[in-house]
Amino acid sequence: MAGKVLLIEDEANIAEAIRFLLTRDGCQVEVIGDGQLALQRLRGDLPDLVILDLMLPGASGLDILATLRAEPRGRAVPVLMLTAKGQERDRDAAERAGVSAFMAKPFANADMRAKVRELMGQG
């Protein structure tokens, strides 16, 4: 599995776990821990997949998703949303904003990796 993954997650330990797992699967993982920085980053070249935390400092995951989907070139980018809240309301909001997949924390590593693979079209 090759591809560029942009991981937007403010919890350093969680980011480390995901980075470790996906790198081992062959992805290029770039980690950003702040919403504002993530928005800046997304103005540049787009990754093959965005993994997005819902609760972020600077700008919320939903904001970032909406900004991404507002651009024509950003519409095709698959986005996997992670959330520790796991509430229906958040899931609905994310789906309306155009999320590709949704995953609650904590997750099983295998599930997460399968989802990433699926989203990157290598399922």
């Binding site: 919890e11 330990n13 969680i14 776990a17 995901i18 470790f20 797992l21 609760m55 520790a84 809240k85 796991g86 509430q87 609650a104 924390k105 904590p106 997750f107 099983a108 590593n109």
Partner: peptide, 20 residues
């Protein structure tokens, strides 16, 4: 909702790394 978030966050790291 806050408590859920606060509990799930450390739990996520613990679970992921323990699996690793």
């Amino acid at each position: 909702s806050q408590i859920s978030h606060e509990l799930r966050t450390p739990m996520t790291s613990i679970r992921a790394f323990s699996e690793i």
